[in-house]
Amino acid sequence: MRNIWTIASREYKHYFISPIAYVVAFMFLATVGIIFALTILNANQSALYYPSAPDASSVTGPMAFLLLLASPALTMRLLADEQRMGTMELLLTAPLRDWELVLGKWLGAFLFIASLAGASLIFPLILNFLIDPGIDKGILFAGYLGVLLVAASMLGLGVGISAMFSNQVAAFFVSLVIFVVMWWLIGVPASLLPNGGEVFRYLDMASHFYETMIRGVITLADIVYYLSLTALGLFTGTIAVEIRRWR
């Protein structure tokens, strides 16, 4: 446990001296902020025709989508760079289990995303002041839980992929392609196949968030889905690190 924390806190601190992390943080918060502002303006204008108040989904929706880009940018260097710089030799000869290393790396990235999500809470807070009875706390909670689960799974897969490369850019693009496939493209065979599309539908990363949690529905199936993906990524990463030892 202590080892995981040592690795995670170093990674977390490293994000605050890394330009990429600042770019990610800026992109993340600025985009969410702009979309949020537009939603409110739009709601004001169209209130006559569609009398429904905006809720936290106007923040959590874009956030989940932005993770698609943010996660690969945050995970790409985690293990790939250790390999490139040779510091992997240091970590692998320290009294530290391989899975502790991988889990620690993931935790560092997750805490950074969680901090960004924490900072974005300012938008629902503003919304809460603007709307008379206040916003729906259930939608807020479920939405943020969903964002954290999506982040956990994407970062998990990202760490796993980073462990396979010694080039950050390669790790970034491979992660991005996998997320694009699992987020968008996987819906295509699901809609084309009359039967047997169930598997694809289940694997669709976006639907587990956009069909349930963003609306305030929390189901065990969705939680299990995201946690399984996280575990799969971390397991792959550990195996990849172990394979490196054998080469």
Binding site: R2, T6, I7, H14, I17, G86, M88, E89, L90, T93
Partner: peptide, 30 residues
């Protein structure tokens, strides 16, 4: 690994850390 001190040939170090922070990180790992 707990009982061995190792200096690899390439002397891999985290170049973006201070000497103290780096050694403290390694001390914590141990």
């Amino acid at each position: 690994r707990r009982r061995v001190g190792y200096l690899p040939e390439t002397v891999p170090l985290y170049t973006d850390m201070t000497v103290f922070d780096y050694l403290k990180f390694m001390a914590n790992l141990r």
